[in-house]
Simulated assay, not measured.
Amino acid sequence: MTLKELSVGDRARVLGFLAEGGAYRRKLLAMGLTPGAELSVTRVAPMGDPVEIRVRGFALSLRKDEADALKVEKL
Rank of each mutant, 00 (worst) to 15 (best):
F17H: 12
M47G: 12
L29F: 08
T34M: 11
G9A: 03
D49A: 11
Y24L: 08
K74W: 13
F58W: 08
L3P: 00
K27Y: 13
A59Y: 06
L62T: 02
K27V: 11
K74R: 13
S40R: 02
P46N: 07
R11E: 00
P50C: 14
A30V: 10
L33H: 00
G36L: 11
L29A: 12
A19Y: 13
V55D: 04
A19T: 04
R25V: 15
K27P: 02
V55F: 09
V8D: 01
A19G: 12
R56E: 03
V51H: 02
L62G: 01
A67L: 05
V72S: 00
F17K: 07
L33F: 02
F58L: 04
K27D: 08
L15E: 15
L28K: 03
R56M: 10
K4F: 11
S7E: 11
G57T: 05
L18R: 06
A23C: 07
R13T: 14
V41F: 01
P50A: 11
E38F: 06
V41W: 00
K71E: 05
G21S: 09
R13M: 13
P50W: 07
G57Y: 11
L70T: 02
V51L: 07
V72A: 03
S61N: 15
F17Y: 15
G48L: 02
K74P: 06
K71D: 05
L33I: 08
L6M: 15
S40Y: 04
E5I: 05
V14C: 05
V72P: 00
L28N: 04
T34H: 14
L60M: 05
D68L: 04
R56P: 06
R43D: 09
V41D: 03
L75N: 10
V44Y: 03
A45P: 12
A45G: 08
K27W: 09
E20D: 13
D68Q: 09
V55N: 10
K27N: 09
L70K: 00
S7C: 14
I53A: 00
I53Y: 09
T2F: 06
A67I: 10
Y24R: 07
A45S: 14
D68R: 11
D10I: 15
S7L: 12
